[in-house]
Amino acid sequence: MRIAAIDVGTNTAQLLIADVTGKRIERLHVAERFVRLGEGVDATGRISKAALRRLGDVLRDHRSVAEAHEVDQFVVCATSASRDATNRDEVIRFVRDETGLPYEILSGEEEATWSFAAATAPFRDVHAGCLVVDVGGGSTELVAGTNPSGHTPNAERSISARVSLNIGCIRLTERCFTSQPPAPNDISFARNAIDSALEHATLIASSRNDGALTVIGTAGTASALALVDTGPDSTIDPLNGSPHTLTSERVRHWREDVLRRSPEEVLALHPKAMEHRATVFPVGVMILDAVLEQTGASVLHVSPYELRHGLILRHLASA
């Protein structure tokens, strides 16, 4: 069976086309389009008409690409922005009427579960504790587990705790930054919001007490950071790439670097990876840095797989 999975987040709508044979997934095509669906949602509580039009255009394009690949089934799921919007029912109707596609809004728990399953899938040697971090536009998902490699391909069985925090990079940029580069007071405001959210996440405290911990970053900010770290000539393969590793010192270096830059200067670091992301990337790196500091982890492993891969795993689990 050939499946097209679309993950509609706060910032992007990501497509994965894959052939599924039994429990084997062969990734054939990936695409990322920027929608900024969550623009203004933190302030107004609603997804705007302009954002809906952008979403419709992108989903029609994704559908056209998928149909050219002769897919058998579509799986379309949405996360934080759609989940938080007071007009979520309008969004579901709009997508159905304008694109003919299904539109399921995942709970924070479902998003965390399948982000974890996807993020840990490329790893074959994680048998102790691990923490998966997915910094999205509207929220940050944290999922703790033990021995995901021993539970492959059903890594969700290893999950011990999960939480969805309302500290996504778009949400906090809109809330905390009045200029870019941000003023010191804006940086302190954002960091206090991040620290407060993490301090109330009990799984962070338990992670600190469990000894050796593998921290895995997945999707948006983490993937973009891997590309920035390897440079604009990076040959990271989004279909078949291997995990990328950054030390905590390297993450801290990039945090300090991007907070000193204007959006144009952030964009210049890696024009492709930073397109439509440059203004919110600094807060995303702040969140990753804070997670490493709170857990005491010395390394961030960046997974090449993310929620759209998890949506196919979820489909298989329910088949």
Score class of each variant (00 low, 15 high):
residue 126 V to C: 07
residue 153 P to A: 12
residue 103 Y to L: 15
residue 101 L to Y: 08
residue 122 P to H: 02
residue 115 S to W: 06
residue 124 R to H: 14
residue 165 L to H: 01
residue 114 W to Q: 07
residue 138 G to M: 11
residue 161 A to I: 10
residue 115 S to I: 07
residue 108 G to E: 07
residue 164 S to D: 11
residue 157 R to I: 11
residue 167 I to N: 06
residue 153 P to C: 13
residue 120 T to D: 02
residue 148 P to M: 08
residue 166 N to Q: 14
residue 143 V to H: 02
residue 111 E to H: 01
residue 112 A to D: 06
residue 145 G to V: 10
residue 156 E to Y: 14
residue 117 A to S: 15
residue 128 A to H: 12
residue 117 A to Q: 11
residue 117 A to D: 05
residue 121 A to Q: 06
residue 129 G to H: 14
residue 102 P to Q: 10
residue 147 N to Y: 10
residue 120 T to I: 03
residue 104 E to N: 04
residue 146 T to I: 15
residue 134 D to E: 13
residue 124 R to F: 03
residue 127 H to W: 10
residue 146 T to N: 13
residue 163 V to F: 02
residue 163 V to Q: 15
residue 118 A to M: 04
residue 116 F to H: 14
residue 135 V to D: 09
residue 136 G to S: 07
residue 107 S to V: 04
residue 143 V to K: 03
residue 109 E to Y: 05
residue 154 N to H: 15
residue 157 R to C: 11
residue 101 L to M: 12
residue 161 A to L: 09
residue 103 Y to A: 12
residue 101 L to V: 13
residue 123 F to V: 02
residue 159 I to C: 09
residue 152 T to M: 13
residue 120 T to P: 00
residue 130 C to R: 00
residue 130 C to N: 10
residue 109 E to W: 01
residue 158 S to C: 15
residue 101 L to P: 10
residue 110 E to K: 02
residue 125 D to K: 04
residue 146 T to A: 13
residue 165 L to E: 09
residue 121 A to K: 00
residue 167 I to H: 02
residue 128 A to W: 00
residue 106 L to R: 03
residue 151 H to G: 08
residue 166 N to K: 14
residue 102 P to L: 09
residue 137 G to S: 03
residue 140 T to F: 10
residue 161 A to H: 13
residue 101 L to K: 07
residue 153 P to H: 11
residue 111 E to A: 05
residue 143 V to D: 08
residue 136 G to W: 02
residue 165 L to W: 01
residue 130 C to T: 04
residue 116 F to T: 08
residue 143 V to N: 05
residue 109 E to I: 03
residue 127 H to K: 00
residue 150 G to K: 09
residue 133 V to P: 04
residue 101 L to I: 12
residue 151 H to F: 15
residue 109 E to T: 05
residue 158 S to K: 04
residue 167 I to Q: 09
residue 114 W to P: 02
residue 123 F to A: 03
residue 109 E to A: 15
residue 141 E to W: 01
residue 160 S to Q: 15
residue 162 R to T: 12
residue 120 T to H: 00
residue 127 H to L: 14
residue 159 I to P: 12
residue 151 H to M: 12
residue 158 S to Q: 02
residue 117 A to C: 14
residue 115 S to P: 01
residue 149 S to E: 05
residue 129 G to W: 09
residue 153 P to G: 13
residue 146 T to K: 13
residue 155 A to Q: 15
residue 165 L to D: 08
residue 127 H to E: 12
residue 137 G to R: 01
residue 154 N to L: 15
residue 124 R to D: 13
residue 124 R to A: 14
residue 120 T to L: 12
